[in-house]
Simulated assay, not measured.
Amino acid sequence: MDIGRLRALRELSIRKTMAAVAEALHVSPSAVSQQIALLEEEVGIRLVERRGRGVVMTPAGQQLVLRAEKILIEIESAKADIAELKSVVSGELRVAAFPSVAAAVIPKVVYDLAERHPHLTVQFEEMEPAESVAALRSWQTDVAIIDDLNMPTGALDPNIETIFLMEDVFNVMVSKDHRLSERPTVGLHELREERWAIDTASDTYTRMLVEACQEDGFKPNIVARCKGFEVTIALIRQNYGISILPGLRASYDLEDVWVCRLVPEIRRKIFLAFRKEEKRSPALQAFLDRMAEKPPLS
Rank of each mutant, 00 (worst) to 15 (best):
K219I: 15
K219H: 14
K219F: 13
K219Q: 15
P220L: 07
P220Q: 05
N221L: 05
N221E: 11
N221C: 02
N221R: 13
I222S: 07
I222F: 11
I222Q: 06
I222L: 10
I222R: 06
V223T: 13
A224R: 06
R225F: 06
C226M: 14
C226G: 03
K227A: 11
F229T: 14
F229I: 09
E230Y: 11
E230M: 08
E230P: 03
E230G: 08
E230F: 12
V231H: 12
V231E: 15
V231C: 04
V231Q: 15
V231W: 06
V231A: 08
T232S: 08
T232I: 11
I233H: 06
I233T: 10
I233R: 07
I233C: 06
I233G: 02
A234H: 13
A234V: 02
L235Q: 07
L235N: 05
I236T: 07
R237Y: 03
R237F: 03
R237I: 09
R237N: 05
N239M: 01
Y240C: 10
Y240R: 14
Y240Q: 07
Y240H: 11
G241L: 02
G241R: 03
G241C: 04
G241K: 01
I242C: 02
S243C: 09
I244G: 01
I244W: 01
I244Y: 00
I244S: 02
L245F: 05
L245K: 02
G247T: 00
G247W: 01
G247N: 01
R249E: 05
R249T: 10
R249F: 03
R249S: 14
A250R: 09
D253N: 06
E255N: 10
E255K: 12
D256R: 10
V257S: 04
V257D: 00
V257Y: 01
W258F: 03
W258K: 02
W258I: 06
V259P: 02
V259L: 01
V259Q: 05
V259R: 07
R261L: 13
L262T: 01
V263R: 13
V263A: 14
P264I: 02
E265C: 04
E265M: 09
I266K: 04
I266G: 02
R267E: 06
R267V: 00
R267K: 15
R268P: 00
R268S: 14
K269F: 02
K269G: 03
I270F: 08
F271D: 04
F271K: 07
F271P: 11
F271R: 08
F271N: 05
L272K: 09
A273L: 04
F274G: 09
F274Y: 15
F274P: 12
F274D: 10
R275V: 06
K276E: 13
E277Q: 15
E277R: 14
E277W: 14
E278N: 13
K279S: 12
K279H: 13
K279C: 10
S281R: 12
S281G: 11
P282S: 08
A283W: 04
A283D: 08
A283P: 10
Q285M: 15
Q285R: 15
A286K: 08
A286Y: 01
L288P: 05
L288Q: 01
L288K: 14
L288T: 02
D289W: 04
D289P: 00
R290K: 15
R290L: 07
M291P: 08
A292N: 05
A292W: 00
A292E: 06
E293H: 07
E293T: 03
K294M: 03
P295W: 00
P295A: 00
L297I: 09
